[in-house]
Design a protein around this nucleic acid. Sequence first.
DNA 1: TCTGTGCATTTTGCATGCAAAGCGTCAACG
DNA 2: CGTTGACGCTTTGCATGCAAAATGCACAGA
Lengths: 236, 236
Amino acid sequence: MVIDATAPTPRRRTAAPIVRSRPLHEEVVDRLRDMIIEGDIPVGERLHENNLAETLNVSRTPLREALKLLANEGLVDLLPGRGARVSALSAEKVGELFEVVSGIERLAAELAATRMTARDLERLKRMHDKMAAHFAAGERHEYFALNHQIHVAIVVAAKNETLASTHAALMVKARRGRYTALASEERWKEAMAEHEALMEALARRDAKRAGDILFEHDRRTAETTKEMLEKTKRAG
Amino acid sequence: MVIDATAPTPRRRTAAPIVRSRPLHEEVVDRLRDMIIEGDIPVGERLHENNLAETLNVSRTPLREALKLLANEGLVDLLPGRGARVSALSAEKVGELFEVVSGIERLAAELAATRMTARDLERLKRMHDKMAAHFAAGERHEYFALNHQIHVAIVVAAKNETLASTHAALMVKARRGRYTALASEERWKEAMAEHEALMEALARRDAKRAGDILFEHDRRTAETTKEMLEKTKRAG
DNA sequence: TCTGTGCATTTTGCATGCAAAGCGTCAACG
DNA sequence: CGTTGACGCTTTGCATGCAAAATGCACAGA
């Protein structure tokens, strides 16, 4: 594209002062990640550097840096010489993801049981009670949000940043496609009971039991999710 | 360093056909990662884009892409507007790393116990016997190499690629600075006995026991390593 | 109609240019 | 003697240019 002097291209951003607090490529990573997770960019979609750069109003350089990072995260596949596309997330991959998460969260629960502060426990209890209320009211969406927050809070209470960031990285992928659903009322009730037991174990600071409960809880959630996915696949 | 016009710069690579199988930035990531892990680039060292690009014989673009990826891996810190430097690896971080690895490997052992093929088990046994021989001969270096291979092999035998790549990513950081040492003959003997027990549990396909043994083994290794690190720090 | 080959276009991958932000230095001032 | 601020060099961050590779398409031959 040759720049026409008579119609100065609006995407020439050099003029704007670089008073950006964050580097542009980070911005782009976040925006693209959101778009992929939210499904705004469908799976398999080709990511043209020129088009995308124009859409996002950045030049190809930061965009390329962002694509590389997303490829590293596993959200896009980079075919050498043939561009990038949104990576497919197979049922198997999702199963693997949940499996690893269950391992991480088991450890997190064990560590949290011994390391969390009284404040951490209070906070967990408050979230748990709120979630229980949403459960009682049958408010699925709110329940899900809090459920996720609780899982994250337990990981954080384990006081291990590496554990937390590893967990977060996995969750980004796991949450793609909104695989957060309960197959049945039955399973929902069960899950709620498991959370109940987990809270109790944490309150007693029973590391082993808390770990086992969360591990088993995650395993069942994974099971349910896999069933749902396979049902959806057969249906679709 | 100014390039002398009388000696045409050899780093002008545009002329060379792009018959590279791998993209240049990957090459650069691997080379830099090795250099950092091997300690060729000391911790805290500033990574100048111009200098490094010249040293590695690439232009700044692929180098910048590589630096971003390494930052993502946690090997370098990217100070916005102020370049990149090799990240420090504190004793705490190493402790965290080992902790997460122990969680991953516990799950791996459990899964491997149920999923590994007869071939996998055979292979593990061979490696284990070889390692035992190195132990008997007092060959630490060879012992370490095989020890690492066995841990990796168990993770692979778990048949979960996500687990394997998560583990690999953590190990890259954990192995930085050669934190692979045994504090004492005593601990070495103990570790060998733990491996012995682990192999037995795996052979019996006792998932729970295999997981517990490896978890405990990793915890103790971490403990020993932390002690060593602190001793080194005090000494240095 | 199907398949293979050559050309034109598109798109990637890398190099380089350029403006702004960082950083050190040194001098003027309190 | 210490502090501050202006100036210039250095380095980063981004935009853009350009060559090679990939892709699509037309067309010829089977």
